Computed example of a mutant assay.
Amino acid sequence: MFRLLTSVTLFVLSVNGDFLTQERTRGATLKPISACCDIPELGEQKYLTECSNPKLPGPCNDVQCVFEKSGFLVDKHTLNKEVYRAHLRQWLEGHKGWEDAIEKAIKDCVDKDLRQYLDYPCRAYDVFTCTGIAMLKKCPKDAWKC
């Protein structure tokens, strides 16, 4: 009986050997957790290109540029909530599975006025960072990489 059980176990392990290999090759990581969720691009390629050529310096300027060109800001310090909310919901049409993440982003980042506390105020950065965090918290299983 022991031989039969051992033979069956070895057969199953040889057939499913890739499972054992995966477990041994996956090591610990200290990557930022944001690297573990493959969040699709939220911005329009046209505006991303315009705001990247040349790359604007600082932590806010490129995000500010994209938000301004996209119409997400009323002025430098005020989010156009209706436009940004509509953009996120329209984005969702092409990205099924992200419903919970988008609803969390709208609830946490559009319906509330959060501050991310850079050394200087940057509303675009505040909203963009909040959106990324909200989407990371509700990352769909099929987008999780770690």
Rank of each mutant, 00 (worst) to 15 (best):
T129C: 03
L5W: 14
V74L: 11
P54Q: 10
E93I: 03
L114M: 12
E103H: 10
Q64W: 12
T49R: 14
C146V: 05
E68R: 14
V74N: 10
T131V: 09
K107E: 15
C37G: 05
Q116W: 13
C65M: 02
V15P: 04
L114V: 12
L92H: 02
Y47L: 01
E41S: 10
S14I: 15
E41P: 05
H87I: 09
T6M: 13
V66E: 06
G17R: 07
D142Q: 12
K31L: 14
G71L: 04
G94P: 03
E82T: 15
T21C: 10
V12L: 14
A105W: 11
F128Y: 14
Q116I: 11
G43K: 00
C65T: 01
D38Q: 12
L4A: 14
Q45D: 12
K138P: 02
N61V: 00
R24V: 15
T21M: 11
G27A: 10
H87L: 02
F19D: 05
L20Q: 07
W98Y: 06
D108R: 04
P54C: 08
M135T: 07
G97F: 03
V8K: 09
K112W: 01
E82V: 15
P54K: 09
V74Y: 01
I106D: 03
W144H: 11
H87V: 08
A35W: 12
T9V: 12
I133E: 11
S52Y: 00
D142K: 10
K76W: 06
G97M: 01
C37F: 09
P40W: 04
P32V: 11
D62Y: 08
Y125L: 13
Y84M: 13
M135H: 08
A143T: 01
S70G: 05
Q45M: 11
T129I: 11
S14N: 11
E82Y: 06
A101V: 05
D18W: 09
K104L: 15
K96V: 09
P54T: 01
K81N: 02
K96I: 03
V15W: 15
I102N: 06
K141V: 12
D119S: 11
C65W: 09
K137W: 09
I33Q: 13
K55R: 12
I39H: 02
F19C: 03
K46V: 04
W98R: 02
M1H: 09
A105D: 04
P54Y: 11
P32W: 01
F19H: 10
T131W: 05
F19K: 15
S14L: 15
F128I: 00
L42N: 04
K55H: 08
T6N: 07
C109Y: 01
C60P: 04
R24L: 14
Y84H: 04
H87Q: 05
D62A: 11
K145D: 00
T6L: 15
D142W: 05
E23I: 15
W91A: 00
T25P: 00
T29A: 11
G71I: 00
K81F: 01
G132K: 07
Y117M: 09
V127D: 03
A28Q: 10
C139T: 06
T78F: 02
Y47E: 08
W98P: 00
S52H: 02
L118Y: 07
T29M: 07
L10T: 08
T129Y: 10
A143R: 13
